[in-house]
Design a protein around this nucleic acid. Structure first.
Lengths: 206, 206, 206, 206
DNA sequence: AATGAATGAGTTTTCATTCAT
DNA sequence: CATGAATGAAAACTCATTCAT
């Protein structure tokens, strides 16, 4: 009676991947459990062995996607990198640029979550935490820049909000018009523009 | 004798208003035609006298909302204002700040449209045009600033994208966490930060 | 105060004509009261001034159409014509042939009534009477032929049924395939074939 | 282990039978999917597992019924029977007489199809083919009779049309008034009457 | 008499979920 | 574990009928 290896986790992420693909393509509502099952190469019944309901799958996606996203930023900020903070931020934007292909496909899912946040407490709470952490990480970077004398004594929180907003906004604009908004160039340009405003030498007397 | 006045237009906007309220509260999918009818104080059948289908209502909302939005910006940029462009932009952000209450309630609808844009050509095209115009208006302002010597010789398009992205992103962040992201202050701060980077005196040698 | 002429009857037949046209085109169910109103050049409300309901209109059509049909036959049989009965029958088929254009358009209506007869007592009863009268008229003709020695001593009822069935069946076949079933020729041929079987000289020893 | 047997075909005919019963009773329009489901002992949803829509069921019935009908005639005509053609035709009428009970219940359905043929190309085309084949089969019999010298040199096509029309017409008359139109006797009488007209010894000089 | 805006009951169809095998 | 046939609640949409004008 050799214990069979637990395929449970494997199945769950197999389903999750399928669901993400299908939801991205069709939206939460238009996507049928059948579609997900087919995409996952499983039967419809099997889905219910691993997830209690469609909503449970959606909830799992919420967690998975944004956690994934956060990991990237986290691991970047965690280790104190050499080089100027400005350089680091530019490297971060570089990474974001590279992740864009993947992210772009998932944006419809993200937008649906944003929409849902307006009516579902739990989704709302989760996203709130997500963005809070996101801003906190960015703020830490900014603070580092201030500490090192690279940046003026700005409010790191405010700058973090600004940068986070910038990333999100650019992602939207790119999603809607990839031709007009060359993501990888634009994120660099935009970030640089902002960093110019942060530089320790104030650009002009206020 | 007295010809009954044409209530058609009145009904249509009555329904539109109701639909916006209901969709914002429940989302496109969860909202039933009955809900809209009730909110409008009409019968379900009456809805179909003025809109062919639920989708037609949604399409009408798309046009209405974003056109409304655009009008504000348009009328602002159209008339060449006295005072520095920087001041004008700060005034614009002020206006945006004031419009936030109204906009905030509609954001779930906007997000659903962004999500839908991924799968519906027409929605996609419409939003593309919207953002294009939006950026063009902003770019015009920036160009004015460059012409007047207020700003460095930056690429107005790139700055317009940056500002538009910033507004959109901030709206999202505010929507998710109004406590942490004080909209009216933050939009001012963020814009100022960016404008600092534009000032004609370059902040520091690169 | 000259009494206005009663337009009531005029309106009723105006509506009936319109309804017949629409029902023939669309069928009882698919035809909307709106369609009838439009065809009649009246408002939907006006229909209800003259007919209590859609079903009432349908009932009126039932009576109108088949009574109309019966009149033709009746007036033909009523007056004792000169010439042989065989000739008379051939003249009758001639008349039927000429009426075919008009009838052809109405056949879908007739078929719907036949179908409805299976579930609505009143329709059933009406059609039963109609066909009874129809057969009786034909039987009278046949009897005349027997009396005159033109025909064998057949059962006039049975022959009447046969002829009536023949007319109805040919109408169906013509309706379905006018190309293959040349109505005016075929009804002549078929009738002649039958009359041959009736002729007083038995065709062959049995 | 035991693979579940494919119930698909069984279910389809189970539904078809139920639908035929319900449609015959209520008509295509008045019959609700719920009625069919109940008659079939299935849920409404199950119906849609096997038929895409109500119309699909109706289309299936069209094919089923008339194909069934045709099979009877076909198998009769296919094998060259011994005995005179006249006898064969009388046997055929005998068969039709026996099938009448079954047919009688289905006549409302047939009439609805005839009515629909006026507006639906596909139904029209199908019935056209059906009657074409029907006539062709009968014509073959008649031709056989001519070849054998039983019948005069009539036009087999015309006679086939006549006989087909006779059968259809008699079915209608019987459906409307079974009391007055004793089907099994009448079809025999009518057919005989016609055959008399066909006999090789012309009844009278024309 | 006539209109046509408004009503709401009624029907088809979809699809998440269950459960016998 | 896995399947997929079956369920039935839910919702968009239609249209005969009404009635205020």
């Amino acid at each position: 009676m050799s214990p069979r290896p637990d395929v449970s986790e494997e199945r769950k992420s197999q389903i999750l991947d399928a669901a993400i693909a299908v939801f991205a393509r069709l939206g939460f509502h238009q996507a049928r459990m059948d579609d997900i099952a087919q995409e996952a190469g499983l039967s419809k019944g099997a889905l219910y062995l691993y997830y209690k309901s469609k909503d449970t799958i959606i909830a799992a996606i919420l967690k998975y996607l944004f956690t994934q996203e956060m990991k990237v930023l986290h691991s970047f900020v965690a280790t104190e990198q050499p080089g100027s903070v400005r350089t680091q931020l530019e490297q971060l934007t570089q990474q974001l640029a590279e992740a864009m292909n993947w992210m772009s496909r998932l944006m419809p899912i993200a937008f649906e979550f944003y929409a849902i946040a307006g009516r579902q407490k739990e989704v709302h709470q989760f996203l709130k935490e997500y963005f809070k952490e996101y801003r906190a990480d960015i703020a830490r970077l900014i603070q580092r820049g201030i500490d090192r004398g690279e940046f003026r004594a700005v409010n790191p929180q405010a700058v973090a909000i600004t940068l986070t907003a910038l990333y999100e906004g650019l992602a939207l604009l790119f999603f809607v018009d990839p031709q007009a908004v060359q993501w990888s160039e634009q994120i660099t340009t935009s970030t640089r523009l902002l960093l110019d405003g942060l530089a320790s030498q104030p650009p002009s007397p206020q």
